[in-house]
Amino acid sequence: MSAPDRVVVRLASPALFVGASADGTGADTDVVTDDHGAPYLPRHRLAARLRAGAHRALAVSPDLAGVVDEVFGRSRSHGRDRMLRVGHAVVGDAVRAAVARALAGRSERARAVLRRAVTDAHTALEAGIEVGSDGAAEPGRLRTHRVLLPDLVLTSTLTWAEEPGPDHWRLVARACLATTQIGLKGTRGRGRVDVRLADPEGADPDALTLRLAVPPGEGRR
């Protein structure tokens, strides 16, 4: 059985991946997109969420405390002191290839229209009243937010600086299972996600992640 080579992120509710889109969507809060207009989750945000998930997982697996810094590096570190590197979480290869073909050879004006269409296909525009520091609505402060649609699946590649052992995989699997929110306004029910490991052979991500999360000798009766 081959080792996992990527992390799969499935949105279970609308999510705000705040940033700059390729051409701008006119929303007060825009969404991060690549040069083709497709939304993605930047690798540093995903890595930060996984690291936070790893720390939450220590509540049930304190024996892995020493492994967290090995795998994810020290807190807020962007240096080379980590074994695992994750890539941007992006839409599938087939979608990106189709968009690239559609954009090829077109004028910049036509490319801008197509990029915006790609963004619109994966997102929705929501409006709401801005909330003040006291939790009350601010009169006359209507704001719009570009959110990613539920059921969108994004994939991030995994790269290891050295060969991982069973404890490294167990930690990463538990970090995935403990990562249930991504994006802004998570406390308001936004950005609920399922994060799982996947391998090149197409094994079921849920079963694969759960298998790796179980310590050797447990749960295998």
Rank of each mutant, 00 (worst) to 15 (best):
Ile129Arg: 11
Arg85Ala: 11
Thr155Leu: 04
Ala102Glu: 15
Gly165Thr: 06
His88Gln: 07
Arg116Ala: 09
Ala137Trp: 09
Arg101Tyr: 13
Phe72Arg: 05
Glu130His: 09
Val131Arg: 14
Thr144Tyr: 10
Arg82Asp: 02
Leu152Asn: 04
Gly73His: 07
Val90His: 06
Gly140Trp: 05
Ser77Trp: 11
Ala161Asp: 04
Ile129Gly: 07
Leu125Phe: 10
Thr155Gly: 01
Ser107Lys: 11
Arg96Glu: 12
Arg174Thr: 02
Ala89Arg: 01
Ala136Tyr: 10
Gly135Phe: 07
Leu125Thr: 14
Cys176His: 03
Trp169His: 03
His78Phe: 14
Leu149Phe: 03
Arg116Cys: 08
Val91Ile: 13
Arg82Ile: 10
Gly132Gln: 05
Pro150Tyr: 05
Ala97Gly: 09
His78Gly: 14
Ala117Arg: 01
Leu149Gly: 00
Ala89Gln: 04
Leu84Asn: 03
Arg141Ala: 11
Leu158Asn: 03
Asp167Trp: 01
Ser156Ala: 12
Ser156Arg: 01
Ala104Glu: 14
Arg74Met: 13
Ala127Phe: 12
His78Thr: 15
Val68Lys: 05
Glu70Asn: 06
Trp169Gly: 03
Ala173Phe: 00
Ala97Val: 15
Val118Gly: 00
Ser75Leu: 14
Leu148Glu: 01
Gly105Pro: 09
Ser133Met: 12
Val172Ala: 04
Leu171Gly: 02
Gly140Thr: 05
Val86Ile: 09
Val91Cys: 10
Ala161Asn: 08
Arg76Thr: 13
Gly87Ser: 10
Ala94Met: 15
Val172Leu: 13
Arg174Asp: 02
Leu142Ser: 00
Trp169Ala: 00
Gly73Lys: 14
Arg85Met: 10
Val113Asp: 11
Arg141Val: 03
Arg101Met: 15
Val147Lys: 03
Asp134Ile: 08
Ser75Arg: 15
Leu114Met: 09
Arg115Gly: 03
Ala136Met: 07
Ala104Ser: 14
Asp93Ser: 13
Gly105Trp: 12
Ser107Glu: 11
Ala104Tyr: 12
Ala137Pro: 07
Val153Gly: 04
His78Ser: 15
Trp160Arg: 08
Ala161Lys: 03
Asp151Met: 01
Leu152Thr: 07
